[in-house]
Amino acid sequence: MHVTVAVVGGDEHGCALDDDATYADLIRAVGYHPQEASILVDGSPVPGDRVVDADRVTLLRLIKGGAT
């Protein structure tokens, strides 16, 4: 399965995933941890343990940066 991930405020990524991959797997494939990002499908958040069922999603980073 091929999924296009549009990162809010960032780039788009194309990801090739297994058919049983979850949204948490997709977040990891783009290089983030599931605790720092959420996936939106048609503008609504989806649970990380749900099997990917969309070919285009938005990734919203919940945590960015840190203390200096």
Rank of each mutant, 00 (worst) to 15 (best):
M1H: 11
M1Y: 08
H2C: 04
H2L: 12
H2G: 04
T4H: 01
T4D: 11
V5R: 01
A6D: 14
V7W: 08
V8S: 14
G9A: 08
G10Y: 05
G10A: 13
D11W: 05
D11M: 04
D11E: 13
D11K: 14
E12G: 05
E12R: 13
H13Y: 15
G14M: 05
G14T: 08
C15Q: 15
C15S: 08
A16S: 10
D18T: 07
D20F: 06
D20Y: 04
D20E: 14
D20L: 08
A21Q: 08
Y23P: 02
Y23I: 02
Y23F: 14
A24I: 03
D25M: 09
L26M: 06
L26K: 04
I27K: 01
R28D: 05
R28P: 02
R28S: 11
A29L: 05
A29M: 04
V30T: 12
V30K: 08
V30L: 05
V30P: 07
G31R: 12
G31D: 06
Y32M: 13
Y32D: 13
Y32T: 04
H33F: 09
H33N: 10
H33Q: 12
H33D: 12
P34G: 02
P34I: 04
P34Y: 09
P34M: 11
Q35R: 12
Q35E: 13
Q35F: 11
Q35P: 00
Q35H: 13
A37R: 01
S38M: 13
S38C: 03
I39H: 03
I39M: 11
L40N: 06
V41G: 07
V41I: 15
D42Y: 10
D42M: 04
D42N: 15
D42R: 14
G43V: 08
G43Q: 07
S44M: 10
S44C: 10
P45Q: 12
P45Y: 13
V46H: 09
P47Y: 06
P47W: 02
R50K: 15
V51I: 15
V51H: 06
V52A: 02
V52N: 07
V52Q: 05
D53W: 00
D53L: 03
D53M: 04
R56G: 01
R56N: 07
L59V: 07
L59I: 08
L60S: 14
L60M: 15
R61E: 13
L62E: 09
L62P: 00
L62G: 03
L62R: 06
I63W: 10
K64E: 15
K64W: 10
G65F: 14
G65K: 10
G65R: 06
G66P: 05
A67M: 05
A67H: 10
T68S: 14
